[in-house]
Design a protein around this nucleic acid. Sequence first.
DNA 1: ACGCAACTTGAGTGATCACTCAATGCTACC
DNA 2: GGTAGCATTGAGTGATCACTCAAGTTGCGT
Lengths: 200, 200
Amino acid sequence: MARTTLHDWQDSLERALGLFWRKGFHATSLKDIEGALDMRPGSIYAAFGSKGQLFQEALERYARLALAELERVLASHESPLAGLAAYLRQLGGLCDHEAPSRACMLVKSLLELGEQERVARGKAEALLAGMETRFIACFADAQEAGELDPRLDPVRLGRRLQAEVMGLRSFAQRDIESAAVHAVAEDMAASLEALRSSTA
Amino acid sequence: MARTTLHDWQDSLERALGLFWRKGFHATSLKDIEGALDMRPGSIYAAFGSKGQLFQEALERYARLALAELERVLASHESPLAGLAAYLRQLGGLCDHEAPSRACMLVKSLLELGEQERVARGKAEALLAGMETRFIACFADAQEAGELDPRLDPVRLGRRLQAEVMGLRSFAQRDIESAAVHAVAEDMAASLEALRSSTA
DNA sequence: ACGCAACTTGAGTGATCACTCAATGCTACC
DNA sequence: GGTAGCATTGAGTGATCACTCAAGTTGCGT
């Protein structure tokens, strides 16, 4: 029939994700994307539609990976609270690994995008809501397991945890010693563990 | 001698601050600024030098106002810990007032600016460090007043508080019910108050 | 071997970007 | 009232923006 595609869609998306995560939406130009994907404008538009649509695909991929990582950490711990605490402690190591940015791409997008980019902004909001939902489910699970006082509100705890993660990762974006980030993460994790019922 | 200035420098800066706070650095164009200040490019450049310098002036003004507000709340409470808790609870009302943005402009800038805007980014970092310093001083004061266990580390507590404020305000930027933000703020404030020494 | 169709190219689109500067307007002083 | 001199104007600068499309390239079915 026809010529085979030269570029792998997933791989191109991965490269674009790195760019957008590091530089944000507005500061990333099509020139940057052309360079990172080694593609010319025509191919990019044929594959992804527009800069905005490419950004949205990148957002979704980011959120999928972030949720998968959370699931991985949760699965490797015996209880929901222990899993969440481990997740926080792992975030304490943000400064120690190379990544496009230490801040959460969803938060960066939430703070950067305005009315002009309504659709992408809405996507970021929805993906953050998804993370919140997962956090809430963890606390509900902890209650079912008798790990958490049943009088506490999982929704409230989930939202607080999301705010703490947002704050921790934004704090890590500062030009600061790795130890400071580890310490903040440790304190947050300890607070979480302090919720554990003494009867559990 | 000469013609008197038509525009008030402080007032112009205030308008620019509102724009930058709401839309961020990249999404704010000189056209936007011309409109908000009712000034033509020549006047803007004569008064502020460049878009980047105007942004930096706005950042500094923002930080000065934010610090002043913190001082105001602290002064109106009898103890450092009570003041900080009140500050957090006040942030819970972010959704209830009209403001350019519910998120902190320093955090928005920290997450948005890259290597291209190194100077402005550095300024945002320095101003955040100033806020951190003030938080730390509060905890040190609380220890001197016997309000806080002297074995705790004020630096560590100050950083954790900054991360929580960053997170709370970023969370408030979500399209969410005001009550949810109030609840997160209340929980953070309660955690802070739980630090109070039983002997105080 | 060939021709079609899908993929890729890259010069070019108009719009908008931050910014400049010669001309003009205005006021304070003489 | 004249004028010295700063404030202001706004059309215009080259660069860059996101994006298009006709032409070229290539692999697959026949």
